[in-house]
Design a protein around this nucleic acid. Structure first.
Lengths: 206, 206
DNA sequence: TGTACATCAGTGAACGCGCGTTCACTGATGTAC
DNA sequence: TGTACATCAGTGAACGCGCGTTCACTGATGTAC
């Protein structure tokens, strides 16, 4: 295969090198541009510069590819949530607020990812790695809401009620934001995010 | 056209009578079964018992059909929200709780509808009727949160912050519920709904 | 009240299209000796 | 260090499929006179 890179014709090896990663990247860009409805495996292969049959060696189906993308997305989200609450000088409420803002920022930055992560009918939800990654993201929030620093009452609270309350609010805000309910411009959304979400979370997580 | 209805062959007129309504119903059943990704106009026509070309006389495109479905769904949701807050003997907080529960119940009952209502990339969002219907649903909540019976501070609150806070929570809970975050069984979801959402809304809308 | 005729809402076969998949093949890589 | 060979990851043409749309046509309805 030859590719015109910076004006220079480069000879590529017959084998790609890391086609799996290239397909994931191509599929993500395609999803970001056209959404799930506009996705096709052929087009993803085209963008990765390989033939239509090549993906089969790395992903058994579109479902498997989507599941891998969603898994990566949950891991990235978990990273961000953990980072947002890592500052030990901040109190618990501040860290919860930070996590909520980080969640929404992730959604605004990668709306197609957030969408896919929850399109369970298109995913192999029984996939071990997918379950691990999504559980990790949930645990980052749960640890904070009901964990060591939580008020005595919350700690070991039976059921995950307080966590679900925070999660619903943050997730709902994120979805409404990327679905355009707060206006199409991202500026108005970001203003609403910083003005509103922290205050709401403070009230919820007390 | 002949159709086997209750074992009796019925002779139908060449013209359908109300194909527009029949197509909407067929499309809804198809969406409920297969979701947006599995939808096709041909299959909807098939279910309505007409030829593939027939829908063109009623809907210029899939987008137009989807927009009509979403519009109906918003109207139905608005009806329910208004009904849920109609009891004048209840105080404001109780009515907000009722609306939230009604919203989530709508989502659980018609997950495909709730999904489509927010798939703005598939809808003609500039459609007058769609805008009217969605605004009506939002107004039902906003009136309650910031309306006549609201605390002095809320009444005429600049911006829609309190409304957005409630809306995010309810919408997020609904999405998580239909996306299976609370378990696949609808029973566990309903239990979480009644145990959790009213308490959260009371706290938010004070 | 009849009749002529325009209009409207359907038919059904045919179109080209992009899709996922298959298949025989090919070229690079890794390993045994 | 070379060589033989199995294995793996790619090619590209071909497949059948369902899709949305088109087109000439058809049958029912509504209206003018």
């Amino acid at each position: 295969m030859t590719v015109d890179l910076c004006g220079v014709k480069m000879r590529h090896s017959y084998h790609h090198g890391d086609l799996r990663a290239a397909l994931l990247a191509a599929a993500e860009s395609l999803l970001a541009e056209r959404g799930v409805e506009g996705f096709s495996l052929r087009e993803a292969a085209r963008r990765a510069g390989v033939s239509p049959a090549a993906p089969k060696h790395h992903f058994a189906s579109v479902r498997a590819l989507f599941t891998a993308i969603a898994t990566n997305a949950f891991d990235e989200l978990a990273d961000r949530l953990e980072a947002a609450s890592a500052d030990a000088t901040q109190d618990r409420l501040a860290r919860i607020r930070n996590q909520g803002v980080a969640y929404v920022q992730f959604a605004i930055e990668y709306p197609a990812r957030l969408d896919l992560m929850w399109r369970v009918s298109l995913l192999e939800v029984s996939d071990q790695d997918y379950q691990r990654a999504s559980a990790r993201a949930f645990a980052a929030l749960d640890r904070l809401v009901r964990g060591e620093d939580a008020p005595r009452l919350r700690k070991g609270h039976p059921g995950m009620a307080p966590t679900i309350a925070c999660w619903s609010t943050v997730h709902g805000f994120a979805r409404l934001a990327i679905d355009g309910a707060f206006g199409t411009g991202s500026e108005s959304t970001k203003r609403a995010l910083h003005a509103l979400l922290p205050a709401v979370l403070s009230r919820l997580a007390l």
